[in-house]
Nucleic acid binder design. Structure first.
Lengths: 259, 259
DNA sequence: ATCGAGTTTCCGTATTATGGATAATAACTT
DNA sequence: AAGTTATTATCCATAATACGGAAACTCGAT
């Protein structure tokens, strides 16, 4: 499951070839979890060895890739920094509104984006409560098993949803998780009707979560509030949903407004 | 403070120009917090507009940069993913040992690397205790004010240390923090003698931390255990130091061993 | 000590990125 | 609302740049 995952390297017209190739290599290393040797990479992306070697050298000099003592290549710390900044920038616009949500509702609020076929949490404002959700920023999770993920999926084409479900798979972290594409599609329809997604202990037992997509965002984005089922109940939802709705609207307009 | 931070773009011989330039642009966007407009970027990196535009286009197509509705450019979600994977890969080798440390000592353990002139936490295993350190993965901190940072600094050339202190500055988060280069150098000398670093409430009041650098790591790396001063005392240190030492040695050999 | 898979360097070639000039678009001004 | 400027996007001839075949080298295995 490695020679087909990276379908060579997409070359879009008007793009700079070497840059596209360079990121193809990064993708390739990212997919082959851990290190990847030169020839291993050459097998995946379809390029002559010297070319790959030269590109990798450049990336190593840039600190984006690090070369292991056994000559293998791995993603380097430079990417940690860039990724961190990228995430915080995405989250930065949303943060003040998340803070309001937390202040108002007393539960943790999150922003997540879709990357590839997974959800990535880009920012979180944790509640002050003792027992609270512990969703690390940067964590990745399956779309169908999270509130934010389902909220995002509900805004995509059905075929795109199928494709994501197919490539990422549909594991069921708990017995409440959605397990089949049929169920998922029905669930997404419900989400579209009511305007928000519910994660009913689907990601973790005892945790309920309300999520909503940010309309017209530059990247697929959703926000959520989550907490233990004991506190996050119907009464909570009645207070939370309008707040989520207005937060989503404001974030959306902030993002369109630039800065 | 923006036209001098990015000293054009470093071009190392044997490197692929366009790739180096592309990452120069990413750096530039990263530095100009939030969005950066085309001409703003052109002012920082010293390149003709069409060239920048073409490179940015490529990066946008790759999902690494996103273009805002006001035509500004910002780092995109693709980087979040790569950075996340890069971080977890760096941390992955260390994680099992961190787990052991936490199991044995009952306090949170961290791995951090140096990136630029800052420390970045790449992984953490949190203790099960109620009151625990809340160091998010991906967080950046000043070298001189953290245990891991000082442990790493202790292994660098004095001039490099000076340079880092000069460029990053030396803020003092608490009244215990090291505030001058003189103090720092003395402290680093002590660290070299005893073989580990102590963060004595220098980052946050009430928090003590023992840290040790990973020798011969592919990137500067250090591990630490930290917790409230009430629990993390001399008796704790007596248990912790040998464990840290052996963990560091094992991680080091694992990293040299490849995979 | 010999071999061979995998990695790195070399260098002539032409493919590829380049950037000056120009057009299109947005922002400001009167 | 029309004119003006600043900013961004597109063309395309040029040559500089990245390319990749071939050959040297390194390291682990036999």
């Amino acid at each position: 499951m490695s020679s087909k995952d990276t379908p060579a390297i997409r070359q879009s017209k008007g793009g700079v070839q070497s840059v596209e190739r360079a990121f193809g290599l990064l993708e390739c290393i990212a997919n082959s979890a851990g290190s990847a040797t030169l020839s291993h990479i050459a097998a995946d992306v379809n390029l002559p060895l010297p070319t790959i070697h030269r590109l990798l050298n450049t990336l190593v000099n840039l600190g984006v890739v690090r070369q292991l003592p056994d000559r293998g290549y791995a993603l380097g710390p430079g990417l940690v920094r860039l990724g961190d900044i990228a995430g915080s920038q995405l989250g930065a616009i949303a943060r003040p509104y998340l803070r309001d949500l937390v202040a108002e509702l007393g539960e943790s609020a999150n922003v997540a984006t879709m990357d590839g076929d997974m959800v990535v949490y880009v920012d979180q404002v944790a509640s002050e409560r003792q027992m609270r959700m512990f969703t690390e920023v940067g964590r990745r999770a399956h779309m169908h098993a999270t509130g934010v993920g389902k909220a995002i999926l509900a805004g995509l084409d059905p075929e795109q949803v199928r494709h994501i479900a197919a490539t990422a798979g549909m594991p069921t972290p708990t017995e409440h998780s959605v397990g089949t594409i049929g169920e998922l599609e029905a669930e997404l329809e419900r989400i579209r009707e009511r305007g928000y997604a519910i994660d009913e202990q689907e990601q973790e037992l005892g945790v309920r979560c309300f999520a909503m997509a940010i309309p017209d965002a530059p990247a697929p984005l959703a926000i959520s509030v989550s907490g233990p089922v004991s506190r996050v109940d119907q009464a909570f939802a009645d207070r939370a949903i309008p707040l989520l709705r207005s937060a989503a609207a404001q974030i959306s307009s902030d993002m369109r407004g630039g800065v």
